[in-house]
Design a protein around this nucleic acid. Structure first.
Lengths: 216, 216
DNA sequence: TTAAAAAACAGGAAAAACCCCTTTTTAAAA
DNA sequence: TTTTAAAAAGGGGTTTTTCCTGTTTTTTAA
């Protein structure tokens, strides 16, 4: 009797999710148990007692509850979960963020399908799987020369401010909307310029977009 | 004997392409003949005499030769091709562009997989298939009231200016870089604010990003 | 060639953004 | 309870952006 490993897929693009399920199901050793459209659905199920599958294939970019948020939850409540992150982008920061939160592997969606199979097998056998690309990124991040290694932690209000700053509003209007003094807003602005290394509001907007703080 | 219709999939994300193939192959009536990673590969094959498949599933956003470029080629050399566009984004402009170039259907990748089956069936039977979303977009674009129908044509210099405005530069610096008077730059600014319907430079930057004038 | 349109340029002024430095309030730690 | 640190608010200033109303120059087309 062949033992099949259960897989859960989390991806907001249903067509992709189901297609991927179809592919995974075509492997004898694996069977897709569920597909979810976002992290919340997965978390809800796990929280209500569902057993962990052998592997979770987790999309990074999702609305509602994205890959990173989901990883953080899993790290806290289900640290033994084996997660392979799936992503369109190869942004260094995102990759590191997922790995730092316990992802066992990171696959770009443009890989050869055979690599998925290999990734699944390897994660089960060895506990992790990383492509050349990810390994390189990892190495680079460990390089002390590379200064870009410290994660910037933004406060709740700062994020609220940034989001509003990415609209066509004046600081005065933002202050009103946040029920704060314009001077406080000015303080946020100044502080953010400093820690993010930007020169003006344009830089702030670009930072916000590049780092997924705002959707456009 | 069941007759199966041949499908070709074009998508740079191999994992998605193969997964989708797996899903399509699971339908009795359809079989995937090829998967290509970009428009060029498809075009090359067609140009060298390959017969058209029943339906082409064509990703919109691809490197090398994207969906729109591919549609333009097909419109010219293989106008009888039945193409269903696949896309992540529901940007009105892109949808219209694909349809204008002869796509028979436009599916967002977050649809229910069952809808794909329906789309394939319908395109074969009726020649086209459109979801509610696309129909609405179409209607809106035909509505003469909707002013958003006239494509905004930007001048060379305006585009140069916009690109620089998306960096952390002052208008003075931009003027220097373009060898123009700051007053001319101010004229560009004012004119662009008007025709693009934005209130300030932030709006301009957002417009530029949304419309692919700048890469971020 | 000439009239019209578009592009470049300007003066002046208000509004907004940006900057530095201080004080008050709040929250947490010793 | 006192000390400390951070968040919020303020004072007062410079620079940049934005806006309005023009003129001059260049380009386009009749």
């Amino acid at each position: 009797m062949i033992k099949t490993h259960e897989i859960i897929i989390v991806d907001d693009h249903l067509l992709f999710a189901r297609s991927l399920a179809s592919l995974v199901d075509s492997y004898d050793e694996y069977t897709v148990k569920y597909t979810f459209q976002n992290g919340s659905e997965l978390v809800a199920k796990l929280a209500s007692g569902m057993a962990l599958p052998a592997i979770i294939l987790l999309d990074v970019k999702m609305p509602v509850m994205d890959g990173i948020a989901t990883m953080k939850w899993l790290k806290k409540y289900k640290p033994e979960a084996k997660v392979i992150a799936l992503s369109m982008e190869d942004e260094e920061k995102t990759i590191l963020n997922m790995l730092r939160n316990g992802a066992k592997g990171y696959l770009l969606k443009d890989i050869q399908p055979s690599l998925l199979k290999k990734a699944l097998d390897t994660v089960l056998e060895q506990g992790y799987f990383h492509t050349e690309k990810v390994t390189t990124t990892l190495m680079k991040s460990l390089d002390p020369e590379s200064n870009s290694n410290k994660e910037i932690q933004l406060k709740e209000n700062e994020i609220r401010f940034i989001k509003l700053a990415c609209e066509e509003k004046t600081y005065k209007e933002i202050a009103d909307e946040m029920f704060l003094s314009p001077k406080t807003i000015d303080g946020y602005r100044q502080h953010l310029f400093e820690i993010l290394g930007v020169k003006n509001r344009i830089g702030l907007v670009l930072y916000a977009i590049k780092n997924g703080i705002v959707e456009i």
